Simulated scan of single mutants.
Amino acid sequence: MKTDVFGLTINYKSWDKKQALPLYVAGNYEIDEAIVSNNRFIVMRPIGDLPTLPAMKKHIEKIQKIDDVPVAFYLKNLSDFRRKGMLESNIPFMTEKQVFLPFIGTLLMEEKNNALYKEKFMFSTQQLFLMYLYNRQNKLYVANVGKKLPYSAMTLSRAVKQLEASDLFLVYKDGVNKVIESKYDRRELFERAKPFLLDPVRKYGYIEKSRIDENMVLASESALAKNSMLNPSKLITYAIDEQKMDINQMENELVDPNKQIRLELWGYDPKLFSDDNVADGLSVALSLREIVDERIEEAIDECIERELNEK
């Protein structure tokens, strides 16, 4: 079966692992495998009443213990309150009028005038946003950005338009040069941008320590521990651009933390803004913002404070 949603072609087929699920999950959903933009994911359609957000998260976990791919819910109706909760909880969903698939960096909605807009930043936009913050200047010239980000002029143009559409930036011409300028100072800009920002981690797995290479940098709690009072975990975490690692060469199971590392596959190159072989603090903070742990939360706050300190 094939459907077209806002120009996204989604191909469906029956998911053959449903029998491995607990009955309370399998009996309450129609479950299919889907492919969109070369990304495979699972679609869960509730049969009866919609589950609570905590229940949805648990049901996603049950699926991913069997099949380690993203999971999205297809919902016939979605209230504004539930939509807001699912966005804040980063729970992917689809309806006839809304699509939120963060694993491909997409949120599309149908406005009254049938115009389509993207609410979550694309990964290219997120990198442009981070470059603005790390540039530490009021103005960022797009021509200079094009020399540093690995994107075509068309992709970069879309990213600039999305920044402008967020209403956080002014975009104007300085002579023949296009300029990006924030409406806010760096601290307020980051806070206001949080609803638009994506978790950079697309997938993760485990590899042997001997396979660490120059494309990888410390990430997650390992990066936090490097620059804060957080005690380092025995299991070291690195990150790499997903384009530079074949997920089939990674293990799903942690067997020995003395011999393995946890490897995150990011939607953009974590080396781009890295310092001293450590992923940039703002991206690390975004990758950990769903974790409820007072120690980590304090370390994240310290990290953000350091990165956004006006120099």
Score class of each variant (00 low, 15 high):
residue 202 R to I: 15
residue 205 G to Y: 05
residue 210 S to L: 05
residue 202 R to V: 15
residue 185 D to M: 06
residue 200 P to C: 12
residue 206 Y to V: 04
residue 210 S to D: 08
residue 213 D to N: 15
residue 197 L to F: 04
residue 216 M to I: 06
residue 188 E to C: 00
residue 198 L to T: 01
residue 217 V to S: 11
residue 201 V to Y: 01
residue 206 Y to K: 09
residue 202 R to W: 13
residue 216 M to H: 08
residue 206 Y to F: 15
residue 213 D to A: 08
residue 189 L to C: 08
residue 192 R to W: 02
residue 185 D to G: 04
residue 209 K to V: 05
residue 192 R to G: 05
residue 203 K to D: 13
residue 203 K to R: 15
residue 201 V to N: 01
residue 215 N to L: 05
residue 193 A to N: 04
residue 207 I to N: 01
residue 185 D to W: 03
residue 187 R to C: 01
residue 197 L to P: 06
residue 209 K to T: 06
residue 202 R to H: 13
residue 187 R to P: 01
residue 206 Y to A: 07
residue 211 R to N: 07
residue 216 M to Q: 11
residue 212 I to C: 03
residue 205 G to V: 12
residue 198 L to C: 06
residue 201 V to A: 07
residue 203 K to I: 01
residue 187 R to W: 08
residue 207 I to L: 10
residue 215 N to E: 06
residue 193 A to P: 04
residue 206 Y to P: 09
residue 197 L to D: 06
residue 189 L to I: 10
residue 203 K to H: 14
residue 202 R to A: 12
residue 215 N to H: 10
residue 196 F to I: 01
residue 198 L to D: 03
residue 209 K to L: 06
residue 213 D to I: 03
residue 190 F to W: 15
residue 208 E to C: 00
residue 188 E to V: 02
residue 187 R to L: 07
residue 188 E to D: 10
residue 209 K to F: 04
residue 197 L to E: 05
residue 215 N to Y: 07
residue 195 P to R: 15
residue 200 P to R: 15
residue 199 D to H: 09
residue 185 D to A: 06
residue 201 V to G: 03
residue 200 P to F: 12
residue 212 I to F: 08
residue 211 R to A: 07
residue 190 F to L: 03
residue 190 F to I: 02
residue 204 Y to K: 10
residue 199 D to K: 14
residue 187 R to M: 06
residue 201 V to D: 00
residue 216 M to L: 10
residue 189 L to N: 07
residue 209 K to H: 05
residue 204 Y to R: 12
residue 206 Y to L: 11
residue 206 Y to G: 05
residue 193 A to F: 10
residue 193 A to Q: 04
residue 194 K to F: 08
residue 204 Y to A: 09
residue 210 S to M: 09
residue 199 D to M: 07
residue 192 R to M: 13
residue 210 S to R: 14
residue 199 D to V: 13
residue 213 D to M: 08
residue 189 L to H: 06
residue 187 R to K: 15
residue 194 K to E: 03
residue 193 A to G: 06
residue 201 V to M: 04
residue 211 R to K: 14
residue 213 D to S: 12
residue 205 G to C: 09
residue 188 E to R: 09
residue 198 L to E: 04
residue 186 R to Y: 07
residue 216 M to R: 07
residue 190 F to N: 01
residue 195 P to L: 14
residue 208 E to Q: 09
residue 188 E to Y: 00
residue 203 K to P: 00
residue 201 V to H: 01
residue 212 I to R: 05
residue 191 E to Q: 14
residue 217 V to K: 11
residue 204 Y to H: 14
residue 207 I to R: 09
residue 187 R to H: 11
residue 217 V to R: 10
residue 205 G to T: 09
residue 205 G to N: 05
residue 198 L to R: 14
residue 205 G to Q: 06
residue 187 R to G: 06
residue 204 Y to T: 04
residue 185 D to N: 15
residue 197 L to A: 07
